[in-house]
Structures are given as structure tokens and as C-alpha cells.
Computed example of a mutant assay.
Amino acid sequence: MNTKTLDEAVLSAEKGRPLLFVNATVHTLDPVLGDLTGADLMVVGAEIVGVGPGLHTAAEDDNAVVVDCTGLALVPVFGAAPRSLTPGNPATFAVVPSGTAGSARTFEMLIWWPSQAPAVVADGEFVIFNGATLTSFVPPAPTSASPHLGVWVDSTGFLEQELTADGRYDETRDGRPHAYQGSFQIEGDRIVYHDDLGFWAYGRFTDGVLHHAGYVLTRRS
């Protein structure tokens, strides 16, 4: 099996050829798979088609560009939402030194702002390498520029959610202040929450209304 370093793979990647990342630590964000060490991840087109040990045995059959990720980690990054690195999901992730991804704060930073990573793959193509943008990839706009900032409330008054320009949210539930707090990121009409307790949640803006966790909220004027 002829492997390439990350640098060589970025420089030589041929559009249309599968990418096979081998010997990586893969932070799948999947509750069943968890974090995999010494694992392989196969990308065909814009999708992940396989993850786990032993995929490298099919490298020659698939004419894949094999990227040696010894000492590196693959981390999901923000798209429509952070998607797990599992088959069928978009091949969108950052490639970082494995020790870097061990920090919860750094891990969160990579998901929100993938341009900070040494390399980023989006929809199966290298789009960022060492801070340089290689394609027309556009990272998410800063949260401070979002038109959706402000206080959102549901019609019953049970839920009140404030979105602030520093990328933080603060929820009041049934009159109980600070019931949930954490960070958020908005891309287009979608919002992703990462609560300080560690869980993720999602929402969507439609015609001036925020749909989140079964609630329908409007912005307080």
C-alpha cells in the first residue's frame, strides 16, 4: 500500500479519486462508536463510506489516495450541523494533531471554526490547508454578524432563549433563569447548540420563527 503524508495528499489529490485516511484517531461523535484509535476512514465522492479498522486492505482495489494519519485525528466540523463521522454522512471534517483534539475547548473550537485547523476536508475535497483556502469553501459567518440574535420566546411564555453576539445562549424555562446555557453557531437557517452540560441540540429559523426542540419561538421586539 503506497501511503502519502498529509502534505503530499493535499498537493497530489486528484479530483474524483477516493480518499482513505489510515491510522487515525477518529472522533466520530457517534454515541455507539465513540472515539476510534488506529482507525481508517474512507471517502468516496462527497460521502463517508466506511470507518473503522482494516479498510486499508481495499485501498488498491478502490484506487484510493491513501493518507497516513499517524499522530493525527479526524474531527467533525460545522456544516448544516456537526454530523457524525459515520458512513452515509457528508465527508466534512478537520485533520488535526491527535493531542490537540483531546482538549474539549479546542474540540469545540474546531467544530465551530474549522479554518483554525491545519487541514479541512469538505464534501470529500481538501478545502483548507495550513490556513490557506484551496477552493471556494466559505466558513460559517461569525456569530456576531447573524441577524437572528436577540431574545426568542414561545407563545406560552414557558421558554425564553437569548442569543448573544459572543456566541452564547441563555434559556429561562418556566420562570427558572439560566436553566440551560452554552455556545451556539448559526449557518443559514440552522442553529446548533452545545450546552455547557455537554449535550448538543438543533433548531431552524423559518419565516421569522425559531423551531427548537418542539417549541415554536418568535423574537421579542
Score class of each variant (00 low, 15 high):
G214P: 00
D154M: 08
T92W: 08
V65K: 03
D40C: 07
W200E: 00
H211K: 06
V121L: 14
A179L: 08
N130M: 04
R220H: 04
D170T: 01
V49A: 01
G38K: 08
D196Y: 14
L149S: 07
V96Y: 05
T70Y: 08
S155W: 06
L134T: 03
A81H: 09
K4I: 07
D123R: 09
P90Y: 03
L20S: 00
W112S: 02
L210D: 00
G203N: 05
I48N: 08
I111N: 10
G16A: 10
Y193M: 05
G214R: 01
N89R: 15
G157L: 05
F205P: 01
S144R: 02
A122W: 11
R219M: 13
T206Y: 00
T156I: 02
S155H: 07
T25D: 01
R83D: 13
N2T: 12
E14I: 11
T156Y: 13
D166H: 02
N63Q: 07
S103E: 14
L20D: 11
R204Q: 12
M1R: 09
G102V: 10
V51E: 04
A64E: 04
V120I: 04
I128Y: 04
L110Y: 14
A64C: 06
G52W: 09
P87D: 04
I191M: 13
N89L: 06
L33K: 01
L55E: 02
F199H: 10
G167D: 10
S103R: 02
L29S: 11
H56W: 13
A213I: 06
L55I: 12
R204K: 15
I128Q: 06
P147E: 14
D40L: 03
T86V: 15
L74G: 05
A39D: 07
D174N: 12
T100A: 14
T133K: 14
T172Q: 12
P18K: 11
V66Q: 14
F126K: 01
T218Y: 05
E108C: 00
A213E: 06
A104V: 04
R220S: 14
D30S: 01
G203F: 06
L217Q: 13
D68G: 02
G45M: 15
R168M: 07
G175T: 15
A64W: 02
V43E: 15
R204L: 03
P114C: 05
V22Y: 12
F78K: 12
G188V: 11
P139D: 00
P147N: 15
T28L: 10
S221D: 15
V138L: 11
A73R: 13
V65Q: 06
G124H: 09
A91M: 10
K4G: 03
R220I: 11
P97K: 06
D189L: 02
R17A: 15
D174W: 08
E14R: 13
T100D: 10
G167Q: 10
T164R: 15
A64F: 04
Y215F: 12
P139M: 03
S98I: 05
T206P: 00
S115I: 14
V10M: 03
G214L: 02
S98C: 07
E108N: 07
A179P: 01
T5Q: 04
L41W: 08
A94I: 09
M42T: 13
P31R: 12
S221W: 13
G208E: 05
V121K: 06
S84Q: 09
Y215A: 14
E47C: 05
V120H: 09
T37P: 05
L217W: 11
A80D: 14
L19Q: 07
D195I: 11
G182R: 03
A81G: 02
L110D: 12
D123N: 14
A59S: 09
A73L: 11
A201W: 08
